[in-house]
């Protein structure tokens, strides 16, 4: 059973401190929602954990089963069992979805999947997320709509089966149907009870489909309040005003 421990994490972007000491532990079987106003540093947390070069770690640790992810390269973190579903997945010209997915699965599993097995997994995964099979031959994210990009992210989540998944505003820009499809994918992923989910969102809407065990409110680079699912209901009713005022 895996555990992600974020300890006193401090992160800067271009010499500006964004995260000011974040503490959070996500265990397998748990779903944590991080909620907060725009600009509070939620996405910075996601990208810093994944190792995006734009973010500079100035203090703290991020341990996955005791291994400090911050010491690892981006790809090593992914192979260690971390997954980041991105808010704005980039287009990669000339690289087909099937080639990309096969390369990723091979890298994460440490061996190439059998072609027949992989084709079957891919087809099932695409069917479950209502992705047109023709996408397999298209270039990664190229010309995908916002919803298609998000479904493609969740397809990767289901194929790569990480220990801990960080979902960065996966719900943004989705209509209700797409949100349901994507949420079902996340729920399939966490159904085993052996994986942890860190769900970053601005809105409570997705939490009706993906029920969190814990809710953390993020403001000005820190967690300022923690609680159970009821905290999300409070935010739904009252908004973030109380927190943004407090930090100002």
């Amino acid at each position: 059973m895996s555990t992600l421990e974020i300890r006193e994490l401090q992160v800067s972007v271009a010499d500006k401190e964004i995260l000011k000491g974040v503490n959070l532990t996500v265990r397998a079987g748990e779903t944590h929602a991080i909620m907060g106003p725009n600009g509070s540093g939620k996405s910075t947390l996601a990208y810093a954990i994944a190792g995006h070069p734009k973010y500079t770690i100035t203090g703290g640790q991020v341990l996955l089963d005791g291994v400090d992810l911050l010491e690892l390269s981006v790809d090593e973190r992914a192979r260690a069992g971390l997954f980041l579903a991105m808010q704005y997945p980039v287009e990669v010209p000339g690289v087909s979805v099937s080639n990309f997915l096969r390369s990723a699965v091979t890298a994460v599993r440490g061996e190439a999947p059998k072609l027949r097995e992989f084709s079957k997994d891919l087809k099932n995964g695409m069917d479950a997320l209502a992705i047109d099979p023709a996408f397999a031959t298209r270039n990664v994210n190229e010309g995908f709509s916002g919803g298609e990009k998000k479904r493609h992210e969740i397809l990767q989540l289901e194929l790569l089966k990480p220990k801990i998944a960080v979902l960065d505003e996966t719900d943004s820009g989705l209509d209700v149907d797409a949100l349901r499809v994507v949420s079902e994918g996340v729920n399939r992923f966490r159904a085993s009870g052996e994986t942890g989910v860190l769900l970053i969102t601005h809105y409570t809407r997705i939490l009706r489909y993906v029920k969190p065990d814990f809710v953390h409110v993020f403001s000005a680079g820190k967690i300022v309040e923690e609680g159970g699912p009821e905290l999300a209901d409070k935010l739904e009713a009252e908004g973030y005003e109380a927190y943004t005022k407090a930090s100002a």
Binding site: A50, G51, H52, P53, S73, V74, D75, R77, A78, R79, F83, L84, M86, P89, V90, V92, G94, V95, N99, F100, S103, A104, A107, V108, V140, Q156, L160
Partner: peptide
């Protein structure tokens, strides 16, 4: 970053791109 974030090693990601 996108390719590496899916576990693909840096040199292989470079070749793919």
């Amino acid at each position: 970053f996108y390719l590496q974030a899916r576990g693909i090693p840096a040199d292989q990601a470079r070749r793919l791109v």
